[in-house]
Design a protein around this nucleic acid. Sequence first.
DNA 1: GGCATGAGTATAAATTTTTTGAACGCGGTG
DNA 2: CACCGCGTTCAAAAAATTTATACTCATGCC
Lengths: 290, 290
Amino acid sequence: MKSRFRHHDLLRLFLEIARHPSFSEAAAALNMTKGAVSYQIKTLEAELGMVLFRRTTRGVALTGEGVKLKDACQGHFDGIETQLSALRGKLARSLTVGVSTYFAARWLSPRLMTFMQAHQDVQLRIQPMIEFSDHEVQDIDLAVRWGNGGRNNGVVTPFLPSPAYPVGNSDTARLVDELGMERAISQLTLLRDRDDSNAWSDWLETTGLPQQTRHDVLIVPDPNVRVQAVVDGQGIALMDDLVQDELEAGKLFRLSPAELSDYGYFIVQPSYAAVTEPARIFSDWLLSQA
Amino acid sequence: MKSRFRHHDLLRLFLEIARHPSFSEAAAALNMTKGAVSYQIKTLEAELGMVLFRRTTRGVALTGEGVKLKDACQGHFDGIETQLSALRGKLARSLTVGVSTYFAARWLSPRLMTFMQAHQDVQLRIQPMIEFSDHEVQDIDLAVRWGNGGRNNGVVTPFLPSPAYPVGNSDTARLVDELGMERAISQLTLLRDRDDSNAWSDWLETTGLPQQTRHDVLIVPDPNVRVQAVVDGQGIALMDDLVQDELEAGKLFRLSPAELSDYGYFIVQPSYAAVTEPARIFSDWLLSQA
DNA sequence: GGCATGAGTATAAATTTTTTGAACGCGGTG
DNA sequence: CACCGCGTTCAAAAAATTTATACTCATGCC
């Protein structure tokens, strides 16, 4: 238990040195001094309790034990390095992007083809993501988040401004028409995206309407589900221009001209993830598409 | 090419740390501080350009990449360590002893059985050795050499004194009888064991006979061959009591009472070889048999 | 809700390991 | 017989690792 796994680098170095006919040549090839090579091999020999090289005045040659050791290890180290570079390579060309299904379906999907064609070498995975906290357990390299940019840990870059405004179905819209927003809102369920989201209170502040402590708020984290809930008359929600289709089809109605103008989509580079080349590329592409 | 193979120990350490649910626990198990563990993993992550662990406030868990890396390396490292200990184990129980065929046949052979029986776990190999310089290329752990102990590089232990005296066949013996040693010797070929051996000149000095520069010396390195050459009347040689059989059979005759009393057999522990357990055991056994 | 707990991290100092650079000894070569 | 190239050695320097300590943060327990 005294020495804890401290000889694998030495073994790897030994394999390299064993390829040369002398310590001096090996040292030159490896950018070391011959003294260092001598020291390292001496250390390894002591560690293993065997003599690996026969020293002569013209150079060195492996002993029988040296040859056996070389044969025993070479394959394994080659294997490690092969798999390592395979992993590195695969990693260097793959990218997992966390997005909501809402954003994926309504904005990303239609444009994705152009990215795929321009960067066929990038292995892209679109990972559905509801809660932000999910990325921590899903090994996401990059995320696209909706909101006003706050409350994210990582590097946040705004890329697609998309003001949010309240929408409702036709019945709701009629109610707002009849009673006016201030009275109607007290009768409607406010659909929220997160427990701690302050989107509604931000919006109320924007309009000058009174803040209200309410009990009937309903939390529907997934925007697609939230849209459907609104269509079904479950309440009203703050949505953005990505519901264009529903607005045009008459399934949803904008209830107020007031909007949260600083809301939109942000690229989040999680603080725990390394900034890989594909992440940069995808990030740039997103910005170019906004 | 900047970093030369300096991450295999880190990988091995990573495998070990990955077995624990937290850096703190891993650190305790490995006799390190958690700071050291944190530092090492950070180093490895930087080296590989990937994040291996997800850090939470309760501990750590492997990321997807961490799992892949672990799976990729575990087998290879296990393989290395298995083969290493196999090699170490085999080595620790094997022993190659360099001896002349002469000594092997006439002294060692008859006694070897007792050693084999007493140490059945030692894998013994008797390596024929003519020239001393041979051991350098034959990975010999221990050698038995004849002579007066000089001219060996390594630790030399005298173990079997065996004075050398001149022997000849019956014709030669008769010649010496008739002419006396001093006159006879000038007519006889002196068989030598090595080019640079001074056994004959040592002997001549012992007897007080004049040194002679001669042209007809014949070098026969192998003692068995030398014995045969003497029997065949090729000349005279300095031999020891291991030719007892030939003396008793009347095939050889001792030509003079003068002998080289400091000659005999020596155990040589080559300076380049590690002193292994079996080498020590065999060495002790030799001494006990003398 | 406050606060002790245990996790990973950060930092600087201490310690250990490795490398360097300049002898040196050895042995083969011209 | 001097020279050259090679491996070794040694002290000093440099680099790496470990330690000790403090810090942040989320969790769990009153």
